[in-house]
Computed example of a mutant assay.
Amino acid sequence: MIAEVLFEASVAYLHWARLQKELEVYQEFVANARQRSEGIGKSAAFGEIAAIDTVEAGIALQERLLQLEQTKVKLLKQKLEISTFLWLNNNVPVELQPGTVPEVGFLHDQVLEVQTEKGVKNAIFEGHPKLRALEAKLKALKVERRLKVNNLLPKIDLEYNFITPEPQLIDNFDTSNYKAGLNISFPLFLRKEGCELKLAEYKIEDVSLELELNRRQIENKVDGLTQELDSYVEQIRLTSEMVENYERLLNAEERKFSFGESSLFLINSRETKLIQARLKQTELFTKFLTTRAELYRSLGVIPDVEAEIQQ
């Protein structure tokens, strides 16, 4: 249950950090679009460029402002979701202050190591809570089966009583006067006891199969998540290279525009591609960390949060 709550809180925080990073990206390009629009407006006023370019620059600025406002709304909703995980010691809910922002540096500075996750997988069967619960249930059923086996044995009652005319007097007992008896009972057909034993064996077999099935399911899920992490590492590497190349293209297009050899349409197109690439990069980092959190949940372990932060 603790691992489940930590996973849900981690996913909510990662989405919050992702939206904060998107907000910073749009703020950066809104500033660029506003500066570009002002510069083009001055150039058009002096007759250096066509006046229609000011319309295109204004549209580009409006698009960036619209994207910025949409991200602000998403960020506000996500901040409210984060607040559901914040409580004081006396069960008093806490709301995030308006100026509170998440730490977003780790989305791009995170060391993408999957080998550590593979090492954790080796301990999958040692302390997984679900497997431990099934193992405890299996032990209890085996004890119950032993009880059912004992029910098949004959029941023997031995009786021994002193005989005395004055039982209220303890010194009046005579060991030579006694009554002894032996009672032996045994079911004739053993139908009820045999059925109960068979049912207990079926229960043991059922839980044993369930235990093995859960082991295989957990192992397969962990293997799948590990491979997914490997894939995200490669995707992030490719996306990072794309971001660098789009930045080169945009810088080159802006230089060509300053020499009169390009157009504002091409600059906006290059800039849009760069924004998409940077947002995709942030999305992949978020998915990588979300999958990593899901791996911990599948393993049923609680990560060392302080060690993760220091790393």
Rank of each mutant, 00 (worst) to 15 (best):
L188T: 10
A17P: 01
V11Y: 00
Q276D: 09
A252N: 09
Y160V: 08
E4K: 15
R191V: 11
R191T: 13
K118A: 08
E48N: 13
K79Q: 13
L199E: 12
Y178H: 15
W87M: 11
W87V: 14
L96Q: 06
L197T: 08
R64T: 01
L68C: 00
V305D: 03
A200T: 00
A51V: 10
L279H: 04
N172I: 00
L266M: 05
K77T: 13
K79G: 05
V243A: 01
E247P: 00
A307R: 14
Q35W: 07
E254Y: 01
L80T: 11
V55N: 03
R34H: 12
L68S: 01
D171I: 01
S240I: 02
T54R: 08
A123R: 13
L107G: 06
P98Q: 01
L14F: 14
N245E: 09
K42Q: 14
F125H: 11
P98E: 04
Q78G: 01
E294A: 09
N90M: 07
E205M: 15
N183Y: 15
E308T: 12
L131N: 05
L153R: 14
D171V: 02
E28I: 07
K280V: 01
Q281F: 08
Q115M: 08
A12K: 02
A50D: 05
L147T: 10
F106W: 05
F259D: 02
R278W: 01
Q115A: 13
L266R: 00
I2R: 14
Y160N: 07
Y13F: 14
K203L: 04
G105T: 10
E103D: 10
E308N: 03
Y296S: 04
Q217S: 14
N150E: 07
P98L: 00
F265M: 07
A12I: 02
A123I: 06
R64A: 12
R292S: 11
E113W: 04
K118Y: 11
K118H: 02
Q62W: 06
L250C: 05
R278K: 15
T226A: 02
L190A: 12
A50N: 06
A307V: 04
I40W: 00
R18P: 04
A277C: 09
W16A: 03
R215K: 15
F285G: 13
N90V: 10
D206K: 15
I267R: 03
L213F: 10
E135T: 06
V30M: 09
P129Q: 11
T282V: 14
N268D: 03
E24V: 07
E261G: 00
E219G: 07
Y202F: 07
V92N: 11
L86F: 00
P154A: 10
E69V: 12
S262Q: 01
